[in-house]
Amino acid sequence: MTSTIVPPTGPADAGLSIPEMTTDEAARLRVTQARVIRSEWLKMRTLRSSWLTLSLAVASIAGVGIVIAWSTANDWNNMRPREKAHFNPLADPLAGFNLAQLAIGVLGVLLVAGEYSTGMIRASLGAVPKRLPVLWAKLGVFTTITLVTMLPTAVITFFISQRLLSSRHIQTTWSTPTVARTVIGIGLYLTVAAALGIALGAILRNVAGAIAALVGVLLVVPVVASALPQTWGDRINKWLPSNAGQALLSVSSDNTTLSPWRGFAVFCGYAVLALTAAAILLKRRDA
């Protein structure tokens, strides 16, 4: 092994020409909401976890849809009459949104709480000391991304699954009442779930804690509440966040669910409440 002594090179003597700005350039350095949005969009797309989680959400909806439609169509002749009666050509192939809401919610949590766990938040809030523009930018970027990816995914999954089901003539069509509302509703529901993830991430500032809260609110609370005696349950359960939001996706409505748009409005209300809390805490707490 030879050892060579390398004279110190590189930055130590690379000359300290600190790049300076012209006064003109410097005068244009205002922080604006549009710039913060651009920054957050750049932040989101430069993390591997964003694409991974988003792909997972797309794959959940499309994958579940194709598998259910394909297997049902293949198996149709062997299925029992009762099973056939239970099959819902609209809702069943779209059941993957249940998984997708987790992926989307978790990504929302990661976009905020991930900055706290790594310390990035100090750089973010140092650059934007008014703070709230960061929250609004994250919210705007991520809900937009969710809507423009999940809405087409739901629509395309609908058409593919109906095509698969059409081999047995058990498909439904876009023009059937409630179909368009349900399919578009999946895109809307997931968009609000995205907002909820952002809010929980900002409130709890801890990835594990915020994910637990998200799963608790969207999945666990409805299960626990379903154990209530029926007279109570009928009155309370429909107001729970995910139950209210999923009224938009329900094919039939009765007195145990809210009407589709009213339910969705309630779900949005929860998200607004959570975001308000997040904004107040972000402004007040030390970073």
């Binding site: 750049l42 932040k43 993390l47 991930g114 900055e115 790594t118 938040i121 100090r122 750089a123």
Partner: peptide, 15 residues
């Protein structure tokens, strides 16, 4: 004050 999952250049570009 850096996200560990992002590249150095993207970190600076975002700020």
């Amino acid at each position: 004050s850096v996200h560990t999952g992002r590249s150095a250049r993207n970190h600076l570009l975002a700020l």
